[in-house]
Simulated scan of single mutants.
Amino acid sequence: MITLNPISLTSTQKIMITVSDIEVAHTRIKSFIRKTHSEKSILLSQHFGSSVYLKHEQLQKSGSFKLRGALNKILSLDKSIGERGIICASNGNHGLAVALAAKYAHYKATVFLSKTANTFNTHAIQSLGAKIVAVDGNCLAAETTARAFAQKENLSYISPYNDPLVIAGQGTLGIELNQDIKSIDNCFISVGGGGLISGIGLYLKAYNPDINIIACSPKNAPTLHHSLAQGKIIEVAESETLSDATAGNVEHDSITFELCKKIIDDFILVEESEIKAAMRLIAAKKRIIIEGAAAVAVAGLMQQSKNYRDKNNVVILCGRNIVLEKFCQAIQS
């Protein structure tokens, strides 16, 4: 675990998202999303020796938190712009979220993905009415192709995290946590590009500056962790991880980097074996399926539980979109 001291932003690095932006986002999207419940788990509290609250965002309509940010961005577009079409690149949760958000807004969505994307996600995205464009190569190739197409055709490209409106949408989770849980000492959040933790952390710290925002990532995909340690966004060689939703390098100009420097208090890296153990623990204690990215936050608490005993600990279960066979294999290994 690495502890990061909060860094004040300079005048040229002003935070681009405010509490008011998140509250406006909540008003904009609340009739389209599901307010997922926050639950104190008696069994997990006994297991860890602390008060453990689960935020069940895996029950969101698209199967992950991504719907919030996608909706806030898409519903903010001028109608004449949205009607031209929506573009994104994603092999999974972001693509599902954009497809559903575009459906709600009555816009046409095109999702670029790599040919290696699993058929479950591909079919789910298509079932929501989005057009699929399969690209040779990896996710980066799909993103590069999507951006070039959006620019050429003058269409709106929806970033998964590098956009103030997307971050504000993810921050609406913080509003619900503030409403549902009286006192939070620590909040464990899985981190990829940093959009989710930026939005939630900004909102929660505005009301409780003493709260600890704890970022959790796989050791196999530690790009944001290493970048924060280096003080700049760097490219990191990553390897395969069950938490594919948090994998991948961070855009070099991402606004989430400065936000994360300000917001994150601790950073925990977890092994693949710990991710599997976390998936198995939630299945055993709660009888629910979570994806690898959600398990990363649980694994963070598991690994460092002795440091958070007798505290009010919140764990964000950020998604459930995992192929059943992959889930079964993970919890049995």
Results as ranks from 00 to 15, higher is better:
residue 284 A to T: 10
residue 284 A to S: 15
residue 284 A to F: 06
residue 284 A to G: 09
residue 284 A to E: 09
residue 285 K to H: 01
residue 285 K to A: 15
residue 285 K to G: 02
residue 285 K to Q: 13
residue 285 K to C: 12
residue 286 K to P: 00
residue 286 K to W: 00
residue 286 K to M: 08
residue 286 K to E: 11
residue 287 R to I: 05
residue 287 R to N: 10
residue 287 R to Y: 04
residue 287 R to D: 12
residue 287 R to F: 00
residue 288 I to L: 12
residue 288 I to G: 03
residue 288 I to E: 07
residue 288 I to M: 08
residue 288 I to Q: 10
residue 288 I to T: 12
residue 288 I to F: 00
residue 289 I to C: 12
residue 289 I to H: 05
residue 289 I to W: 00
residue 289 I to K: 04
residue 290 I to D: 02
residue 290 I to V: 14
residue 291 E to R: 00
residue 291 E to I: 10
residue 291 E to W: 05
residue 292 G to C: 06
residue 292 G to H: 03
residue 293 A to I: 05
residue 293 A to L: 09
residue 293 A to Q: 02
residue 294 A to S: 06
residue 294 A to L: 09
residue 295 A to W: 01
residue 295 A to I: 15
residue 295 A to K: 00
residue 295 A to D: 08
residue 295 A to P: 03
residue 295 A to F: 04
residue 296 V to G: 03
residue 296 V to Y: 11
residue 296 V to H: 06
residue 297 A to E: 05
residue 298 V to I: 14
residue 298 V to E: 01
residue 298 V to Y: 02
residue 298 V to Q: 00
residue 298 V to N: 01
residue 298 V to W: 00
residue 299 A to E: 02
residue 299 A to C: 08
residue 300 G to E: 02
residue 300 G to A: 03
residue 300 G to W: 00
residue 300 G to Y: 08
residue 301 L to F: 06
residue 301 L to D: 10
residue 301 L to S: 10
residue 302 M to N: 13
residue 302 M to L: 06
residue 302 M to P: 02
residue 303 Q to E: 12
residue 303 Q to T: 08
residue 303 Q to L: 07
residue 303 Q to M: 03
residue 303 Q to H: 14
residue 303 Q to F: 02
residue 304 Q to A: 13
residue 304 Q to T: 15
residue 304 Q to C: 15
residue 304 Q to G: 03
residue 304 Q to I: 09
residue 304 Q to K: 13
residue 304 Q to F: 13
residue 304 Q to H: 13
residue 305 S to C: 09
residue 305 S to Y: 09
residue 305 S to L: 12
residue 305 S to H: 15
residue 305 S to D: 01
residue 306 K to A: 05
residue 306 K to R: 12
residue 306 K to P: 07
residue 307 N to Y: 06
residue 307 N to M: 14
residue 307 N to P: 01
residue 307 N to T: 14
residue 308 Y to Q: 14
residue 308 Y to I: 13
residue 308 Y to T: 09
residue 308 Y to V: 13
residue 308 Y to H: 13
residue 309 R to T: 10
residue 309 R to E: 14
residue 309 R to V: 15
residue 309 R to I: 15
residue 309 R to G: 07
residue 309 R to K: 14
residue 310 D to S: 14
residue 310 D to P: 11
residue 310 D to M: 11
residue 311 K to I: 04
residue 311 K to N: 11
residue 311 K to S: 11
residue 311 K to H: 09
residue 311 K to Q: 11
residue 312 N to K: 13
residue 312 N to S: 07
residue 312 N to F: 04
residue 312 N to G: 01
residue 312 N to R: 05
residue 312 N to P: 05
residue 313 N to F: 07
residue 313 N to C: 14
residue 313 N to M: 10
residue 314 V to P: 01
residue 314 V to A: 07
residue 314 V to H: 01
residue 314 V to L: 15
residue 315 V to A: 04
residue 315 V to E: 02
residue 315 V to H: 03
residue 315 V to W: 00
residue 315 V to C: 03
residue 315 V to P: 07
